[in-house]
Design a protein around this nucleic acid. Structure first.
Length: 894
RNA sequence: GGGUUGGUGGUCUAGUCUGGUUAUGACACCUCCUUGACAUGGAGGAGGCCGGCAGUUCAAAUCUGCCCCAACCCA
């Protein structure tokens, strides 16, 4: 408790069932105490059995973004798993990370401080990033804590902190030593705004307006079959970079061009016409130019046909000297200028507007270019099969999500480009010999290092003896570090003495669960599998849980541009966190689902119901009654049903089926316990048997609700069941409901059929009262029941206020006639096949005969034994009173 | 353009893998009821033929094919 205000709150607010439930006060209070008393802290013990340690590898959210509904939803799902496992199976590590390493936080810092990174030294700028991020991290912490997640706030990390930098650089060195990394000059995707290479996953498609331009190319040479041909392009500014022209081998119309030489208009250089089946014949004239580089196809052609490199665009999307008069123009300006000049000289044959998808950098929406540059790559294409196998070894919740992972890997075409030409980020621990370019790696013991300010570990180049070294200026791709979270959490490090990698907390690895949204399977999950697998030889996760997206109330994606974003803050200021959690449990894991306010109301109602039912229980029975020698039928029935519910719930939660668990528990609690049993219990409060069952069930309900509704269940638990002697300096770890053992079935046996029938009878009597507009507590003179309700007679009688209840030995006097005949199609079908239609028709038209003596039904020339059909009788009661039929009983009211 | 997933009463959803004939529940709606917690409660009722078409089968929400719609991933 930091502030006087909170102090006062805590002092005046002891858990109590007085009055109504006040979630605002209760939730804040418990969140504070759980954190203050560290009841979710994970204490590592390397000797601990990994099987009883449940470790979650939570993907750290990007600090530069704000907390959105997706975070709220995802964290809540993780917390369901964490809280269940903590109660069920022992120790849980539920860590939290802040992802503040990378372009996102760099851009945030520039915006926040209105500065440019170019104006600062790398370390200086990084310092500023850290300062800016710190504020945002604080905000994140607070908001996450307001969600009531059982995160261990001692187990946090930032992806830019020195310890993590060290791990990230160690990872680089380890992969390098294992031959999994290489530095290569090759075409790479480039963002001209951020001025860095980026990887395939960082680009996205965007619909942009553009023009198609038909440009005439002349053929050179005396024997040319025609004077010119026309190509279509959206990027005329690239014609100075044109290195060839392609025609499809099946393109008969243009076959004559193959082998000829074309002259580029305005620029005048000459290029060959080559055939290649990658040409899209449907597009434009079917003749296409290849530039270095306009798109991925150009790169393939460049490599396949060993074409020369003509670089017309530099790293900032400015035209180079190769563009002649256009040098120094931006690509956009050059495009317009070149089109104008082409037109003036008669080469522009047509021009029309189009909209097409352009690859843009996801961080800044700038269309990307392809540039040849020297970059570091992690080799992944040669291990596709192993990564696929790793994916197969994991349990996927839901299973179907594995397909996305599989297809992603199958479609991989690039090795993983990990170098970025940025300032903020983790530096490569590498220098190069100024003479021979030999790569000099840092010593593991020295990490983390920054080559820009630190010295290389050698005085002379081991290859050529040179004494001058160039530091690597690049930094790692964010994902190169974010993909190490399991190793970060497990404390992976290089042991200098043993000369091997060791983990501080080896019992955590591999992690039990990796949760995340379905949109990041392809990079975050994939990259993490790659890195951890290469470092440890193991699949880092036993299971992965893929959550869907939160949509708006009309099932549309939330987006700022649509203005349909729902802020978690708004939701939490209006509804209890427990209600929000109840909503979060409503969707099957993996499904997208809409945010609907009425679902939160449902949660609120449940909290109220739980609260009020608890109050009632507390007035009906002493808090800790002894178990009687024998339980009466009705009480044993409840506890047997409870056993079933516990078993079902445990199974659901183990399979991450939160929605099923939630519905099962709600139905059992609300309908069976509150509506049926509690009403009966009111009439039996003096029974030790009922007192015991009431309390046992109530305690169990609180425990079962605890993972879903941690605040209200803790409040009620503390108010009633926790050791009241330990209020001051109470050890919350001992008394909290969240550190208790998960309930297990106690093996109660009861006549479930009788219980079920009794509930049917009660229901029938309620319906009778309702239909006759009687209050539910109205007295009924005399009721006779024919049906199996042994042991429940009194319960029925008391709860329905029946003066005289008789159980009939024999079926009441009724006249019966056949109402319908139900056939058992599942055995009938296979046996009679197409005859089933005739049988149906025969019954329909009444052309059948029931032979009671032989127990057979004769219809359509067939004889059906009695296990194949069931005769439904229409009873009409001719005696005194009114008869009501239920599924398995007949009730007569007089 | 390719792939994946989904399309069930007004809304959200269970059931679909393992085909069997009264399709689950909640919210909203209508009627009734103040019973020792809860009227922000309880009891009851109406409402769908399961995106469309075709097929397999004695039988399809459930299997197959095509089409339409939506979301996501990849071009």
């Amino acid at each position: 408790m930091d502030t006087p205000e909170q102090d006062e709150d805590a002092a005046t607010a002891e858990p109590t069932l007085e009055g109504g439930y006040d979630p605002e006060e209760v939730e804040t209070r418990w969140q504070q105490r759980w954190i203050d008393e560290e009841i979710y802290a994970y204490e590592s013990d390397p000797e601990r059995d990994p099987n009883t340690t449940y470790a979650i590898d939570t993907p750290p959210p990007t600090v530069s973004g704000s907390l959105h509904m997706g975070h709220l939803y995802g964290s809540t799902l993780q917390d369901f798993a964490a809280r269940f496992q903590r109660m069920h199976d022992g120790d849980v590590l539920f860590p939290f990370g802040y992802d503040d390493n990378g372009i996102a936080s760099e851009r945030l810092t520039e915006e926040e401080l209105d500065i440019r990174h170019q104006d600062y030294e790398r370390r200086e700028f990084q310092e500023l990033c850290r300062e800016v991020c710190e504020e945002y991290e604080g905000e994140f912490t607070e908001k996450m804590q307001n969600l009531g997640c059982s995160i261990d706030w001692n187990s946090t990390y930032k992806t830019i902190e020195p310890r993590v930098q060290r791990i990230s650089q160690l990872s680089f060195l380890d992969l390098y030593e294992n031959g999994r990394e290489y530095r290569k000059k090759a075409p790479a995707i480039w963002c001209p705004d951020c001025e860095t290479a980026i990887s395939q996953v960082e680009t996205e498609d965007d619909e942009r307006h553009s023009h198609f331009n038909d440009i005439a190319f002349e053929l050179v040479g005396e024997t040319a079959p025609r004077e010119e041909f026309v190509i279509s392009t959206t990027r005329p500014e690239l014609i100075p970079a044109c290195v060839s022209v392609f025609v499809h081998p099946d393109d008969e119309e243009n076959q004559d061009l193959v082998g000829e030489t074309a002259r580029i208009p305005i620029f005048g250089h000459e290029v060959p016409v080559i055939e290649d089946e990658r040409v899209d014949m449907e597009k434009g004239s079917g003749v296409v130019m290849c530039c270095t580089f306009g798109d991925q196809n150009d790169i393939e052609w460049y490599q396949a046909h060993d074409l020369p490199l003509r670089v017309a665009i530099d790293e900032s999307a400015t035209m180079t000297d190769l563009a002649g008069d256009y040098e120094g123009l931006s690509t956009e300006d050059a495009r317009e200028a070149i089109v104008e000049d082409l037109d003036a000289e008669g080469y522009l044959r047509d021009r029309w507007e189009i909209t097409h998808a352009v690859g843009v950098h996801e961080r800044c929406d700038t269309p990307v270019e392809y540039r040849v540059s020297k970059q570091w790559y992690v080799e992944i294409l040669d291990h596709k099969e192993e990564y696929l196998e790793a994916g197969r070894e994991m349990d996927w919740y839901p299973e179907k999500m594995f397909t996305r992972y599989k297809h992603w890997i199958e479609g991989l075409e690039w090795d993983w480009l990990i170098s970025r030409q940025r300032d903020s980020g983790i530096p490569f621990p590498v220098w190069y010999c100024a003479d021979c370019d030999t790569e000099i790696m840092a010593e593991k013991a020295e990490l983390p290092v920054d080559p820009l300010s630190d010295e290389p570990p050698v005085d002379a180049c081991p290859e050529c003896g040179g004494e001058e070294f160039e530091p690597e200026e690049d930094v790692f791709d964010t994902w190169a570090t974010s993909s190490l979270t399991p190793l970060i959490n497990a404390g992976w490090d290089w042991d200098e003495e043993r000369e091997t990698f060791e983990m501080d907390k080896p019992e955590l690895y591999p992690f039990d669960l990796r949760p995340q949204g379905h949109d990041i399977i392809s990079f975050w999950l994939f990259h993490t599998v790659v890195k951890c697998y290469e470092h440890t030889g193991e699949v880092p996760f036993d299971a992965t849980m893929i959550n869907g997206h939160v949509l708006d109330e009309n099932r549309e994606k939330m987006s700022k541009s649509r203005g349909n974003v729902v802020e978690p803050d708004e939701v939490l200021s209006e509804y209890p966190v427990d209600a929000v959690r109840f909503w979060a449990a409503s969707a099957a894991v993996g499904d997208d689902f809409p945010y609907q306010e009425k679902d939160l109301t449902a949660g609120e109602k449940l909290l109220r119901k739980l609260w009020n039912a608890s109050k009632l229980v507390d007035t009906l029975a002493p808090r800790d009654p002894d178990e009687p020698e024998t339980l009466e039928s009705i009480d044993r029935w409840l506890l047997a049903e409870l056993d079933d519910a516990v078993a079902d719930l445990t199974a659901h939660l183990e399979e991450y089926e939160f929605a099923k668990a939630r519905d099962r528990l709600r139905t059992f609690f609300w309908n069976t316990f509150c509506d049926d049993y509690l009403e009966i219990a009111k009439t039996r409060e003096d029974s030790p048997s009922t007192q015991y069952a009431l309390r046992t069930a109530h305690r169990t309900f609180l425990e079962l609700w605890a993972p879903f509704l941690p605040h209200v269940s803790e409040e009620i638990w503390q108010a009633i069941y926790s050791d009241s002697g330990s209020q001051d300096g109470a050890d919350l770890e001992e008394t909290s409901i969240h550190t208790r053992d998960w309930p297990s079935p106690q093996g109660y046996e009861a006549d479930l059929e009788a219980g079920e029938t009794a509930m049917e009878v009660i229901s029938a009597l309620r319906r009778y009262k309702s239909e006759n507009q009687l209050p539910l507590n109205a007295d009924l003179e005399s009721v006779a029941v024919y049906g199996p309700i042994e042991g429940f007679e009194e319960a029925v009688q008391n709860v329905m206020h029946v003066r005289e209840l008789t159980v009939l030995e024999d079926e009441p006097e009724v006249t019966t006639e056949v109402a319908s005949i139900d056939l058992d199609y599942s055995t009938l079908g296979p046996r009679f096949g197409s005859k089933v239609g005739d049988i149906d028709a025969g019954i329909e038209s009444g052309e059948y005969e029931i032979d009671d003596d032989a127990g057979v039904l004769r219809v359509a020339g067939e004889e059906l034994e009695d296990d194949l059909f069931e005769v439904e009788l229409e009873r009409s009661y001719s005696g005194e009173g009114e008869m009501i039929e239920t599924e398995s009983a007949v009730v007569i009211l007089e």
